[in-house]
Structure formats: C-alpha cells, structure tokens
C-alpha cells in the first residue's frame, strides 16, 4: 500500500513539475517578446546570433540531410521494387522529407547543436556575473542577450529545415537515379504530381517555424534560469537537449493531427 501511494505521489509530483516548467517557459516567451524591440531596431545583434545558430549548424544539417535522403531512397527503392513501382521512390522520399523528417530531424539537430550552445553561453554569462554587470550598466539582458539569440534561432530554423529537405531530395536522387537507375523524368514528375506546395511544403515550413520557437525559447530559458555554477550550467545544457527533443516530437504530433484534420 505504501509503495503504491509513494508511486502515485511520484507521478503527481513529476506531472506538476512538468506543467510548472511548461508554464514558466511560456511566461518567459512572453517576456522575450516584450523585450524584442531592440532586436529589430538593431538587427545586427540578430544577424550575429544567426551566424552562431544558423551558419555554424550548416555543415551538420547539410550532411545529415544528404544521408537521410540517401537512406530513404535506398529503403524506398528496395520496397517499391517488389511492387514494380520503383519510379514512385521520388514520391516517398519527398513526402517523408517534406512532411516529417525534414522539419523534425533538422529541429532535433538544431536543438543539440545550437540550442545547447545558446544555453551554455547564457548560463556561463550568468555564472560569471556578466548578466548582472549588464543590468548594472542599465542594459537589460533580456533585450540585449536573450531576445537576439531567440530571434536568431527562430529565423535560422526554417532556413535550415529547407536546406535539410533540399539536400535530402538530392541525396535520394543520387542514390535512386544516378546509382540504381530509376528514370530521372519519372522520379521528378511523380514527385511533382504527389507533393502539394501548400499542404506539404508550406505545412512543413510552419512546423519548423514552431519547432524553432520552441527550441529557442527552451534554450534561452534554461540558460537564463541556470544555477550560476559549473554543474548548474552543464545540467541546464543537458535539459535543453532533452526537453527540446521531447517538445519537438510532442508538437509534431499535435501539428500533424491539426494539419491532417484540415485536409479531410
């Protein structure tokens, strides 16, 4: 009896903590938006962060996109060939990349590459009193440090997802058309007939924008609220990756459900 009660209490505690955390992140997001004015008046600040969040994630995004596309092409070809419709492999590659893999995988990579870096940077600035120093120089760290990093991430994410998708298609093309000899014309035309601009590509971009907002908000939140110690910062970095990944997958389910409901 005791153990059952204890178990229930643990479940309750954890649930409450998660809800509390989500609430805190949403409030923090509101605060970021409130202090976003300077980010757009001095867009150089955001450009700087786009360099760190976007440009520095390029290599990993491009390479992973290429590989994911190649694997999709290979697997799709294997399966479709047994139904005698290997030309449809382009459809399979494109639809899985546009609807799911592009936005989700690029967001997961973004969370572990850029999100963790944002958390570590802000956390360290806090631990070394740089944020306090800024505050004492009458400069609000929310406006000067947090908001530009948030917007840099939000703007970079859809661009990275588009690049991931494009690289994936190229990877699929290379494997199936160049290596396995699928007809090039059929590859593209079947893909074009099946992929719809609004419902596949635009929706995919909307997803990646939402993921970008979630990851950037979580990363800046964890950094800003990190305990100002070495352990605190490293713990916050780990939490950023874990909770961003969970948030991405949960949001993906929600968004997919909404978008599908919109179609049928």
């Amino acid at each position: 009896m005791e153990t059952i009660l204890h178990g229930l209490r643990t479940v309750g505690d954890t649930t409450l903590r998660i809800v509390e955390r989500i609430g805190a992140i949403v409030l923090f997001l509101g605060k970021i938006l409130r202090y976003s004015g300077p980010s757009f008046q001095r867009f150089g600040l955001v450009i700087r962060e786009m360099y760190f969040a976007g440009v520095q994630s390029l290599i990993i995004i491009l390479v992973s996109g290429l590989f994911v596309g190649m694997v999709l092409g290979l697997q799709g070809f294997e399966t479709l060939q047994s139904y005698g419709s290997s030309e449809s492999v382009g459809v399979l590659v494109a639809l899985s990349l546009m609807r799911e893999l592009g936005p989700v995988v690029s967001a997961l990579l973004f969370a572990s590459r850029a999100g963790s870096a944002i958390t570590a940077e802000i956390g360290l600035m806090k631990a070394t009193e740089q944020l306090s120093a800024m505050e004492m120089m009458a400069v609000n760290p929310m406006a000067r440090v947090v908001a530009p990093r948030f917007w840099g991430g939000v703007i970079s994410m859809p661009l990275l997802a588009a690049l991931f998708g494009a690289m994936g298609i190229i990877g699929g093309f290379l494997v199936t058309v160049v290596m396995l000899g699928v007809d090039s014309g059929a590859f593209w035309s079947q893909m074009q007939a099946a992929v719809d601009f609004h419902h596949d590509i635009v929706n995919g971009m909307i997803k990646s924008l939402v993921f970008g907002i979630a990851v950037s908000a979580i990363a800046t939140f964890e950094g800003y609220e990190a305990p100002p110690t070495a352990e605190g910062v490293s713990g916050a970095t780990t939490r950023t990756v874990v909770s961003s990944s969970l948030a991405i997958l949960a949001l993906d389910l929600l968004l997919t459900a909404f978008m599908m409901k919109g179609w049928n």
Binding site: M50, L58, M98, S156, L159, G165, W188, Q192, A193
Partner: peptide, 18 residues
C-alpha cells in the same frame, strides 16, 4: 546562409512541389 536557405525553399517549391 540566408540565400542558400531561400534557394533551397524555392527548389522545394518549384522542383519538388508543383
């Protein structure tokens, strides 16, 4: 980076999506 991103988007829009 931004130009590449937009180019990728346009490729997706015109070459992949109809």
């Amino acid at each position: 980076f931004v130009l590449l991103g937009f180019a990728a988007f346009l490729m997706l829009a015109f070459k992949v999506g109809n």
